[in-house]
Nucleic acid binder design. Structure first.
Lengths: 120, 120
DNA sequence: CTTCTGTTTTGATAACTCTCGAATCAAGCG
DNA sequence: CGCTTGATTCGAGAGTTATCAAAACAGAAG
């Protein structure tokens, strides 16, 4: 048991310098934009937030479909799929339940592209 | 002279703790999602990148419509408007040309929401 | 005032996204 | 096996977005 849910091609692996330092090229921009787009929906942003802040490093889908969000389980599943396709989370089925965890490298890269340097 | 282009309501001012530390509430998520959505298009991401990395802290629109992007000037103008509405850039007309500059606090906040802490 | 250049707005169209209900798949249990 | 519960996928509807051409707007220069 312990079967990985489908892992789709993950955009934007190696890159990139902070946008404050040099301009993105078109290829890098496509992958990064896909990941930012995945964050561009309130429900998805909250889902990712719940997943990244979960104690134990992962969370059961059953804890996400339990009424905190005002959308139905199919919709939550759809949003989780987009986050998976963006390479920001991974999901794994263990017995009855499915667990999601963040892909920290990917989330980190997004933060660094926004140029935390001159931040603080 | 020196007239500000329309400044629309800017989402997500004060907030938030990194999503790695605690889950976003629904209200915060709406504003942040609008800003991330603005980054969710390759053209816009490259535009913001060009603006944030411009020497002198600003860039003339004429340097953006000059053929680096494979879209027409109206489309670039449209994307710049969305970035303005998201509160990520501001624009100002000085004489013939219009200049754009980044709103650093807003970009910083997005980076910090992604939790630069456990990054590096 | 008229004209010219640079930028934005308008209007239209094609493509995409969010959402749900219904159907399907996965695992455990009688 | 057949049933129940949990999660995803399918199919469809309403709404949104990206893009362009054409029109409108803002300044500068003749």
């Amino acid at each position: 048991m312990s079967k990985q849910l489908q892992i789709l091609e993950s955009p934007a692996q190696g890159c990139c310098a902070p946008i404050t330092e040099e301009a993105l090229d078109a290829t890098q921009a496509v992958g990064l934009a896909q990941q930012f787009k995945a964050l561009g929906d309130p429900t998805r942003l909250r889902l990712l937030s719940r997943i990244t802040s979960a104690s134990g490093g992962e969370i059961c889908v059953c804890d996400l479909t339990g009424g905190d969000f005002e959308v139905t389980p199919p919709t939550i599943s759809h949003h989780l799929k987009l986050l998976r396709e963006a390479g920001l989370i991974t999901g794994e089925r263990r017995g009855t339940w499915v667990y999601y965890r963040p892909v920290r490298d990917a989330v980190d890269r997004l933060a660094s592209v926004l140029g935390g340097d001159w931040a603080a």
